[in-house]
Simulated assay, not measured.
Amino acid sequence: DGSDKQFNILFINDGINAHIMYISDVEALTGFRYCNICHRQAFRIGDNNLQVQMRNHIKKCQKNNGKIVKKVILERFAKPFVPHILSNKTYKYLLANNLTHSFKPTQYYITYDIETLEKKVNEKFGDCSQVIATLVPYAIASTVKSVSGIHSFYFDIRTEDFMDKWLEQLFEEAMQVKKDNKYKDETVPQYFEVPVIGFNSAKFDTSLVFKNLKSKDWTITKYLGSSTIAKQIVVKHKRFGVQLRFVDFKIYTTHSKLKDCVRDFGNGTYKKGRFPHEFVNANNYMEELNKSEPFPREAFDNKLRNKKLNEDKYKEYLVEAAKFKTRWDYLQYYNILDTRILIEPIDFLINLMFRYKVDMLANISMAQCANAIKYAMCYNDF
């Protein structure tokens, strides 16, 4: 009849590898029967009212040529649009009970950063696709901000199953962070997910740790984003009940580089360190990191951008490197530093948005925060 033939496929992606399968029987796989006009509406096969529901839906579908027609249904009574109140169940409760003076932001959290090695694979996928290299995690660090202060922890590839060990430690730390964020009054509704914040983690870090987020002890309960970019992942511990909320700090800022973010929002105490990422790779990392002498200056050359490290900056590196016995020790310092320098920028934005009674970490984007602030300012003028 000249129409394009449609196929059903199943796309599986674990964050690193992707696989596409042809589905010959969708109903057997899903347990649902789909409308053959719009291909969107699904009906459970075991439903006793299956035929009636399908018949009613198909009548509407035929009338609209398979297009979804949205209708605007107005409320009987006008309601104020106040997202800074209605989108935050804690503030809404406190406002209703005249307790807004006790409202506080989510101010305790955990940061993390993963260091990776480049592993050349040169694998072809079909006629047009080729993967030249993949990233292999070999070190991971976190910094915890709690009532008792700030501390960090670190694991690397020398420890067996180091990513799982890091997650175990993460859940243990999260139990205390959760307590620190809680209100003393147990009747106050609030968000109990513990923020775990990375920088530029939506594209890289979460994809590297994704396969470790599902195990016998914990599981993913919420995923927001696409197959390549994870805006938010919530992981719940099956035994402790603690929930980790993995987010990227870049959803709250326009900065594309960590050093720029630290420069603009930090207090000047910390600045980003230096590490020769191109020099250390999957083939030589053990040999190079076991050495005790500092990296040579040429190790910091960036061939991709055709940049070299100048003499003054290399001297700054030498001063820092002299404090450590081996390059492994320097790697630990560098990895932890990347998580530590995030604390001040995060706190700065938390306090900035809280001026308008907006809890930054209870929102999922800068746009949502800005929208809440805009209407909060209008609300204050009433």
Rank of each mutant, 00 (worst) to 15 (best):
G2W: 04
F7Y: 11
I9S: 09
L10R: 13
I12S: 14
N13G: 09
G15Y: 03
I16K: 12
I16T: 10
N17S: 09
H19T: 14
H19A: 14
I20D: 08
M21G: 06
S24T: 14
D25Q: 00
V26I: 15
A28S: 15
F32P: 00
N36I: 01
H39Y: 10
Q41L: 10
Q41K: 14
A42L: 08
I45P: 02
Q53R: 12
Q53T: 01
K60F: 10
K67H: 08
I68A: 13
K70T: 12
V72A: 08
A78Q: 02
A78N: 08
F81Q: 02
I85N: 02
S87F: 03
Y91M: 08
Y91C: 05
K92H: 04
K92P: 00
L95T: 05
T100S: 13
H101E: 11
K104Q: 05
E115H: 00
E118K: 02
E118F: 02
K119C: 12
K120E: 13
V121Q: 01
F125V: 14
S129A: 12
V131M: 06
P137K: 00
T143S: 09
T143A: 04
V144S: 13
K145M: 12
I150E: 10
Y154C: 14
I157Q: 09
R158P: 02
E160I: 11
D164R: 03
W166V: 04
Q169H: 03
F171N: 01
E172W: 00
A174S: 15
D185H: 04
V196A: 07
S201N: 00
A202P: 04
A202N: 11
T206I: 08
S207N: 15
K211S: 15
K214A: 15
S215H: 06
D217W: 07
T219S: 12
I220L: 05
K222H: 13
G225E: 11
G225V: 03
Q232D: 06
Q232S: 12
K236V: 11
L244C: 07
F246A: 07
K250S: 05
I251W: 00
L258G: 07
K259V: 08
V262Y: 09
R263T: 11
G268E: 08
G268P: 02
Y270H: 13
G273D: 10
G273A: 13
R274P: 01
R274Q: 10
H277A: 06
H277M: 12
F279K: 06
V280F: 02
N283Y: 01
M286K: 15
E287C: 12
E287S: 11
E288S: 06
E293I: 11
R297G: 04
R297S: 07
A299W: 10
K303S: 12
L304I: 15
R305L: 13
K313T: 06
E316T: 01
E316Y: 00
T326R: 11
I336H: 00
P345K: 04
P345I: 13
N351Y: 09
L352K: 13
V358Q: 01
D359V: 03
I364H: 15
M366Q: 06
N371A: 06
A376Q: 05
C378W: 01
Y379Q: 00
D381S: 15
